[in-house]
Design a protein around this nucleic acid. Structure first.
Length: 748
RNA sequence: GCGAGAGUGGCGGAAGCCGGUAGACGCGCCGGAUUUAGGAUCCGGUGCCCGCAAGGGCGUGGGGGUUCGAGUCCCCCCUCUCGCACCA
């Protein structure tokens, strides 16, 4: 009997499978289609442990579906533009292009070595002009429909990376990529109008088979809030100011009024109220304050504007303030102050000596405003509220809202936390925004036939506050496409997340040269049946991709509104309780392990370590780097058992027959639910039973054959070698028909 | 604070929706066989406590409840992880 030697068998099969064209998606409709998608990798180096984990699971699903008779689309490509590659290239003193393509080559080699069942004929990189011309094309389509627009807005600026960031890319007030606290900058930037889709992004979650965690994250991020809007008037100037509130039932408790510092009326009202100097000083100070420290300061500072707001429900005049605790980005940028029933307003009132008026009373009790130590934000009965006295809480909000509408001073309103997606980047390594700025014509889209707007290679790409493209001597100077006068190109590039928000469409027809994708191919393959990737994209990529799909749907380009039917998140691979990182020096590389012990061992170890969505602590799983990871021993046992079983023609005893059928039943169900770990444990049991049977003189050929098939999606090499060379089958185990079971025999 | 999820041997983890011998499978450890040797292979043992043994007792974060029967269902509490966090 030959020993189990992964290094001797694995490379051989990589070559054979490619020769035989085993993993080409056909798309002829002869078999049911299955689109198995893995989040495409970012080429920042060789594959890491996270890739090994994610792709082991994604590949198992694709192979399982293949054996079940599906026509599987399992593509691969590279998310190749963006900051990390650019920063790494700068550190190494080489061109981002060179660095990126070298990494792609390396990752491609590693994927092949691992035996991934990708359809290599469909691969592409987002930094290739053949791809990004269509990213630019999509920008133009969004622009046409008013979904891409430019505005002056306060933005999150990363001082280290020298670019603006989207809200989704700011984590705890710091740059998602480098951890530097972001500062505020007012800049004219391009945005995608994702807020138009806020409600649909919420509603369409209903039909998604996604982990609850991810849906919750998206729901929170969109942050729908129901309430009312109410129009106040500024007594001294007659300006009308609308506020949003979730508690219209507390309107009779308003004792002051507050504007966000960025509110457009603040400076004029300050002048009108005689507080221009003091207010100006506050605004100047805030302008220089990083967003983070401003958000974290829970101070209740504020300045009296000197004007008053008129409460429309009772005509009372209350003093107006400007205060940093009110955010321009949420609601209308102005709020009514109800200290008795809102904690922030309570603190503000105490700080500034403002009256506290109780208008909601707890069941059968009174609140004493002077004795209150905090606001009372709970339900209760309305008091001191004119016509609404005695109205109990649950329905009071609706009644007051209806009344506001009748009186013409407000009405129901919904507000979302979601902000428009800022997509401009002041960096080199990205797709140029296909717009020309003309002094006469304004923002002029680059004509479709002139796409792509090529990213020039000869640029000093050091970040420097404005886009490096601006420093190129000639690139930006063009004739206006509309009037022919001298004009300049937009010098910013697009956020990498724009590139990745549509790549899954491209896979369906990757060689299209006259359009981004063939709608027919997209209609046939999509939505994606199974999407595998990390949870870190819960409110980034996954939200953007959903938005873009809906936009394409509205343009009549696709017939569905959700791109990913089913989503599976793998856990992280950590080491000794902490994330692997260069600074900690605890990085374990997957490829040396693959070279030494085999890809099958690597894959099976990942999948057996625990539930797919749970984190794996590599130190606990494989504490000694010089000893084989645990799955290696199992594969050796399997190898010997199958070799022995193949050599015997003795009849298979009934207990083994039953176990064989049972295993097929349970393992099939486990694959469907991504329960790789328990599937493997079942196969280990079958392996043990085969050994016992053989030792007792029984036969186990059929059981061994079934076992090899069941394991094939997770350990493609050893099973192929056993299937063809040991069990003597003609074709590949990976195109063999998934074993069936007799329900009678498969009973427990 | 709000939201989501989780607490099971020395360790990773099993015990589906719908209560039925808790700890499958594996790692580690202990003992044995084979071997020049082994980090190779094979066999046996391994939740905790008492006991030489037969056997007995205790066990799924804590407390209570429902039930013939609870890791699983209900109530209260504790701990941990992850999001969001001045969102009006």
């Amino acid at each position: 009997m030959r020993p189990y030697e992964p290094a001797a068998i694995e490379p051989k099969w990589v070559a054979r499978w490619e020769e035989e064209g085993l993993y080409r998606a056909v798309g002829d409709g002869a078999r049911p289609r299955f689109y198995a998608l893995d989040m495409f990798p970012y080429p920042s180096g060789d594959l890491h442990m996270g890739h090994a984990e994610a792709f082991s699971g994604g590949d198992a699903i694709a192979r399982f579906r293949w054996m079940q008779g599906h026509d599987v689309l399992h593509p691969i490509g590279w998310d190749a533009f963006g900051l990390p590659a650019e920063n790494a290239a700068i550190r190494r003193g080489i061109h981002p292009k060179e660095w990126t393509y070298a990494n792609i080559d390396q990752q491609r080699r590693s994927f092949r070595r691992m035996g991934m069942s990708f359809d290599w004929s469909r691969q592409f990189n987002t930094c290739d002009p053949g791809y990004y011309r269509w990213t630019q094309w999509l920008f133009l389509k969004l622009f046409e429909r008013g979904l891409a627009y430019r505005k002056l807005a306060p933005t999150n600026w990363c001082p280290k990376d020298q670019t603006v960031l989207a809200n989704e890319q700011v984590v705890n007030g710091a740059c998602e990529r480098c951890g530097t606290p972001v500062v505020r900058r007012d800049l004219v930037q391009w945005f995608f109008r994702i807020t138009d889709y806020a409600q649909r992004l919420l509603d369409d979650m209903e039909g998604l088979e996604w982990p609850e965690r991810v849906l919750t994250l998206q729901r929170n991020w969109i942050g729908r809030s129901e309430g009312a809007e109410v129009r106040f008037e500024i007594a001294e100037t007659g300006d009308e100011v609308t506020v949003f509130t979730t508690r219209p039932d507390t309107l009779w408790g308003v004792t002051f009024f507050v504007f966000a510092p960025e509110h457009p009326l603040v400076r004029t009202l300050a002048r009108a109220g005689g507080s221009a100097e003091e207010v100006g000083a506050l605004l100047d100070r805030l302008q220089a304050t990083p967003l983070t420290s401003r958000e974290q300061a829970e101070s209740r500072e504020g300045v009296r504007l000197g004007v008053h707001a008129v409460n429309p429900v009772n005509g009372e005049k209350v003093p107006a303030f400007v205060a940093p605790y009110v955010l321009m980005e949420y609601g209308t940028g102005a709020v009514m102050g109800v200290p008795a029933h809102d904690q922030r307003d309570f603190e503000f009132a105490r700080e500034h000596g403002l009256p506290i008026r109780v208008v909601i009373a707890p069941e059968g009790a009174e609140l004493d405003p002077d004795g209150m130590r905090e606001a009372w934000p709970h339900e209760g009965v309305m008091v001191h509220s004119g016509p609404f006295d005695g109205t109990p809480s649950p329905e009071s909000i609706g009644r007051v809202t209806a009344w506001l509408r009748e009186k013409g001073i407000g009405g129901p309103a919904v507000t979302y936390r979601l902000r428009d997606w800022l997509i401009s980047r002041q960096r080199y390594w990205g797709a140029p925004i296909p717009i020309v700025h003309c002094e006469v014509c304004g923002e002029v889209p680059v004509p479709e036939e002139d796409l792509p707007v090529l990213l020039p290679d000869d640029v000093d790409f050091q970040p420097g506050g404005e886009s490096p493209l601006a420093r190129h001597p000639t690139w930006k100077h063009v004739a206006c496409p509309r009037c022919g006068r001298e004009a300049v190109r937009d010098v910013d590039t697009m956020d990498t997340f724009v590139d990745s928000s549509w790549y899954f469409f491209r896979y369906c027809s990757p060689h299209e040269e006259t359009r981004p994708f063939d709608p027919e191919a997209v209609g046939a393959w999509m939505p994606v049946d199974q999407y595998t990737g990390g949870i870190e994209h819960a409110v980034l990529h996954l939200l953007y991709a959903r938005f873009l799909t809906k936009a394409l749907h509205d343009m009549g380009m696709v017939g569905f509104v959700e791109p990913f039917r089913r989503l599976m998140n793998q856990g992280q691979v950590i080491y000794d309780g902490a994330a692997m990182s260069k600074s900690k020096g605890n990085i374990v590389e997957p490829m040396p392990i693959v070279e030494r012990w085999g890809a099958d061992t690597m894959r099976l170890t990942m999948l057996f370590a625990g539930p797919f969505e749970d984190d794996i602590d590599w130190k606990l799983i494989a504490p000694d780097p010089d000893r084989p990871p645990p799955a290696y021993h199992f594969l050796g046992r399997l190898w010997r058992a199958v070799c022995e079983a193949a050599a015997s023609d003795a009849p298979e005893p009934e207990p083994l027959v039953r176990m064989r059928h049972r295993t097929v039943r349970v393992v099939t169900a486990d694959y469907e639910r991504f329960r790789f770990n328990t599937a493997i444990s079942r196969m280990m049991e079958l392996t043990n039973e085969i050994r016992r049977t053989l030792d007792a003189g029984g036969g186990a050929r059929e059981a061994a054959s079934v076992l090899v098939q069941l394991l094939a999606p997770m350990a493609p090499f050893v099973t192929e070698e056993l299937w063809r060379e040991v069990l003597g089958n003609e074709g590949s185990v990976h195109t063999s028909a998934w074993p069936s079971f007799d329900p009678e025999l498969a009973r427990e």
